[in-house]
C-alpha cells in the first residue's frame, strides 16, 4: 500500500489530526508541518527581540565609529522584520483542511521531492536521542566504548542488521577508527574519566 493510498483510506475514518496513530504516513504530517511553519517564525521573532535587547547593552556607537552592538542590532531588526513577513505569509497561506482526495493528490505529486516526504519523527528522535547519549558518554567511557555501544544500537536496533555485520562494523567504527585517528593521524579523541577504564587504555 502506498502512502497516498494509506491517507486516502485512513483519512475519512480517522478524526483529524491528533487522534489516530498513523505516525508514519502523510496524513499526520500535514498539520504538524503547519504548526512548525508557524512556530518557527514566532521563535525567530522572539530571538530577534532578545538580540535587540542584548545588543542595545553592548554599545551602538563609539567615537571612532560603530560599536560592538551596531551590527547585531541591525541584523536582529532584519531578522525580526523578515520573520514577521514570513509569519504573515504562512498564516495567509494556511489552507483549510483538505478533502481526502486532495490529500492523496498532494502526496502523490510531492513524492518526487525528497524534502516533502513525510518526516519520520520517531526515527529522528531515536537518532537524536542516541547521539545525545553517546555525546554524554564520550568523556565517561571514552570514545571507543561509547562509540561501540552507539554503533551496536544503531546497527542492531535501528538498522536491524545481522550480528556478524553489526559486530564487525561496530568494532571497526569504534576501536578501528580510534586506532587510525588517534594513533596514525594524531587526532585527539575523548578518553574515559573512570580511572579503571583509563588504565585499560580507553
Amino acid at each position: 500500500m502506498t502512502e497516498s493510498q494509506v491517507s486516502q483510506v485512513a483519512r475519512p475514518t480517522t478524526p483529524p489530526p491528533e487522534a489516530g496513530d498513523l505516525t508514519q504516513d502523510g496524513a499526520r504530517t500535514q498539520p504538524r508541518e503547519l504548526a512548525a511553519a508557524v512556530a518557527v517564525p514566532v521563535l525567530l521573532l522572539l530571538l530577534s527581540v532578545c538580540v535587540v535587547i542584548a545588543s542595545a547593552e553592548l554599545g551602538y556607537w563609539t567615537p571612532i565609529g560603530p560599536g560592538p552592538g551596531f551590527l547585531p542590532l541591525w541584523l536582529a531588526v532584519l531578522l525580526g522584520a523578515m520573520s514577521a513577513v514570513w509569519l504573515a505569509q504562512r498564516l495567509r497561506a494556511r489552507p483549510a483542511p483538505p478533502e481526502p482526495a486532495e490529500v492523496a493528490g498532494i502526496s502523490e505529486d510531492r513524492a518526487v521531492e525528497p524534502h516533502d516526504e513525510p518526516l519520520r519523527l520517531k526515527q529522528v528522535f531515536l537518532v537524536l536521542g542516541s547521539l545525545t547519549a553517546v555525546t554524554a558518554l564520550l568523556e565517561v567511557l571514552g570514545f571507543q566504548l561509547a562509540m561501540l555501544l552507539f554503533l551496536l544500537f544503531q546497527l542492531k536496533v535501528l538498522a536491524r542488521r545481522g550480528w556478524v555485520l553489526t559486530l564487525t562494523l561496530s568494532a571497526l567504527g569504534s576501536f578501528g577508527v580510534y586506532t587510525v585517528f588517534a594513533g596514525l593521524l594524531s587526532v585527539h579523541l575523548p578518553t574515559s574519566s573512570i580511572p579503571l577504564l583509563r588504565s585499560m587504555g580507553f
Binding site: L131, M147, F150, L151, Q154, L155, A159, R161, L169, G173
Partner: peptide
C-alpha cells in the same frame, strides 16, 4: 542507507 548513516554519524561526532 541505515548502515551508511550510522557510520557517517561516527565521523560527524569526530
Amino acid at each position: 542507507y541505515p548502515v551508511l548513516s550510522a557510520l557517517i554519524l561516527v565521523f560527524i561526532i569526530i
